[in-house]
Design a protein around this nucleic acid. Sequence first.
DNA 1: CCGATGTCAAGAGCACTGCTCTCCGTTGTT
DNA 2: AACAACGGAGAGCAGTGCTCTTGACATCGG
Lengths: 244, 244
Amino acid sequence: MTHHPTPSAGARARVREELTLLLADAARRQLAEVGGAALSVRAVAREVGMSSSAVFRYFPSRDALLTRLIVDSYDALGRAAERAETAVHEDTVAERWRAICHGVRDWALAHPHEYALIFGTPIPGYAAPSDTIGPAGRVPALLMALLGGPDPHGAGAGTAESAAGTTGAAGAMDPVLRASFAPIMGSLPDGVPPDLALRGLMAWTYLFGAVSFEIFGHRLAVVSDPGTFFDHEVVRLAELLELA
Amino acid sequence: MTHHPTPSAGARARVREELTLLLADAARRQLAEVGGAALSVRAVAREVGMSSSAVFRYFPSRDALLTRLIVDSYDALGRAAERAETAVHEDTVAERWRAICHGVRDWALAHPHEYALIFGTPIPGYAAPSDTIGPAGRVPALLMALLGGPDPHGAGAGTAESAAGTTGAAGAMDPVLRASFAPIMGSLPDGVPPDLALRGLMAWTYLFGAVSFEIFGHRLAVVSDPGTFFDHEVVRLAELLELA
DNA sequence: CCGATGTCAAGAGCACTGCTCTCCGTTGTT
DNA sequence: AACAACGGAGAGCAGTGCTCTTGACATCGG
């Protein structure tokens, strides 16, 4: 109705959004400096020159601020992984897997505290709201898309074959095992072979383990050239899991 | 000189040790309830009926208390893994690997906060003192002992063969890759084939990834029967890595 | 046996935290 | 132009880690 660029939201709402973004950015800087556990609303308020109580007008609680940072971190990580994959999207599955792994690792090294926020120890009294489950699945979804649809011309039988060759005959998966990861099968497109999903989960688990080990410092006394080691382990894992 | 059970330490030192133990136990209970990040010295003092300032006579800082809990946790996890392995020590390497994995997972499920303390997000301003590196290596040492010495009669050639079959010719490892994990090779007994150590590291990485995923809640919407899934993934990983 | 010495517990206090409530000026809306 | 909603600041509460001072106690030497 008015001349505002966003008709549905008045000028009031616009500056509110801008201030919210400003606070979130300040909080992200704080996060990068002192880590998630030590993130302080008062320190964020100080950085933007605001009273601490005023911050609560924009984020009803410290947890809400953390939730915002968590969602943003999931999104940033997902974006980084997708960008890395896009750059080699026409290459082999093995190369695309490798690119995703390095994309995830590079982002984690550049933003260790954000990585720790989403993949480290959960905050004590903090329950992840449903807003986070979407962005949280971005990298796994990318991996599943990579493994599930490498060939656009419906040669899926080949994939099923190689999967079957790994353990036992084709489709002879223990029903108890099959049921154990039924939830993820439900959120996957139909037609994905269970063993492929299982190997995808294992790949995702390994990627998480390797990156977390490095980010959390458990490889300091173990590996001297983490990049080289990481490249080898993810490539080798892809060979072993026959992801390609 | 006196009738005390511990002659080197006087009565004074003995009650001091007992009180220190009492405080550590109370802190462990607190840890199990509210988690490491929310562990409060005052709450611990309250639980043992002591003034908060008095606690600092025994632990010079909150970090020192946490260090104690970290060391104890590493030790408890190591003990759990060793006990699980001892129970099947005469079995195949594959079964012993499986037992270790379940031992680690079971301990983590029983003590999630202690697990998070040692394998989760590092405490912000906290630098792990050298006291922790010993206990921290207990499970990896157990794994390496399992892989390195399964056959007491010097049939090591067989292991080397199967290892070589995985990637390229025997001993033809890229020198850059070989150098990347030189530190861990240095703390391993001589004669361990580099590729075996590498696969051991990958196994340890995967075990950590799988357990952490479950403990930190990232498998809630993915897996409905975590025990079955875990058993399969670790057994399958052992097959793929040819640990047996 | 008594006094010197060293240890320990308690309390007050500092600077910090998340969060609530009240007060009040500004400002967009009608 | 009048109004009501909004957003800011400040005080205050209950909690935190940590330090310093004070006072009681036990231990040991002479």
